[in-house]
Design a protein around this nucleic acid. Sequence first.
DNA 1: GTGATTGCAAATCTTTTGCACTAAA
DNA 2: TTTAGTGCAAAAGATTTGCAATCAC
Lengths: 138, 138
Amino acid sequence: MTVRPYTKALDRLKSVGLRPTRQRLGLGKLLFEGGDRHVTAEDLHGQASQAGVRVSLATVYNTLNQFTEAGLLREVVVEAGRSYFDTNTSAHHHFFYESTGSLQDIPAEQVRVHNLPAAPAGTSVSRVDVIVRLRAGT
Amino acid sequence: MTVRPYTKALDRLKSVGLRPTRQRLGLGKLLFEGGDRHVTAEDLHGQASQAGVRVSLATVYNTLNQFTEAGLLREVVVEAGRSYFDTNTSAHHHFFYESTGSLQDIPAEQVRVHNLPAAPAGTSVSRVDVIVRLRAGT
DNA sequence: GTGATTGCAAATCTTTTGCACTAAA
DNA sequence: TTTAGTGCAAAAGATTTGCAATCAC
């Protein structure tokens, strides 16, 4: 069997109609071939450098936004002034470690949110986020 | 009965040991005497101007942060790069209107979150936020 | 080739900070 | 007085954008 390092990323790009450029493939590989991940633009830019993928920070931002619009990523906002991008796009929730700024998925099936008021007239629910903020200590 | 326009704000400031300066009183009055509110620093600065309370944007930021640290406000993060401050500091959740960027409280008693995994070892839950994101349309 | 994509630097936006000035106690 | 608080302008971060150069098709 041949090694096809970019296959998953390539397929994802194709499936959403984004031209598979060197940097999109490189970033896609980093994002999609390492299990579920939560990264900031800065994080990903650093990882790209280490992995030898040459890409500017501006392009990392643009790419993350394009991937998010295309539904390949999900943006998670838990802290003012910093966006996280989550490779897990299915319904789920998050633990947020306040001391380290890191995120951890909570499977959606596991959580039950009851008695939410109905969406106000003229609107519909696009997403329900549950964020469990954790502090260090007992 | 005498009119005591700053009473509520004054009491709150005293209760947390913040010196009641002209601008803190002015901002406090705007914040605490208008029912539950969700404001950004920019919002509040604008409202202060209109109300004739002269205060710089920097001081608005500083004041919002001090009030939040003192427990008079609660910071709500729903959008990247923008912080909302909520005058309702009791446990509750939020509707977020994506199209307008506005927030609406959902009373906590009304919502039941079941089966949340326990806080990981070495941590404890500081807060559980439920954000119901609404889009315009049905 | 031709249009999409990228890189870079500059621009934007929100928020914070340093410091001289002002006001509360 | 004495010390906390304020305003302003500059600084700091995160993110976006304009445009010429580059790459995918």
